[in-house]
Design a protein around this nucleic acid. Sequence first.
DNA 1: CCCTGATTCGC
DNA 2: GCGAATCAGG
Length: 113
Amino acid sequence: MEWTEERVATLKALWQNGYSARQIAERLGGVTRNAVIGKAHRMGLSSRPSPIKKTQKPAAPAVKERSCQWPIGHPGSDDFHFCGEAAEAGRPYCSTHCEVAYRRSSGSSENAA
DNA sequence: CCCTGATTCGC
DNA sequence: GCGAATCAGG
């Protein structure tokens, strides 16, 4: 196929209307999306929403680690507070309190302390 | 495996 | 200049 004024105009029109290269190629007929993209690139077009997204994620509010939320004292009490030590990654407590928090007492009769 | 555009490369 | 092949990512 030949890139006539008409075909080029169609290409540009569709491209600017947000059509994907594949849609344009299909519409024109006799060309593949590569031809469309290649032609578009050659005429100075392209620069459409590139699929190659940049890994730009500076805003990562993903909660990494906070301070240990292990309660110290009685809730409501004047000196009630949380442990505050550096918590383990992905856990709400520090290493010490993690042991306590996740200590599974599965049917053991070790209650005589 | 489907898609997207970008770029490269031989013709 | 052309477009398939390849690249790079979703």
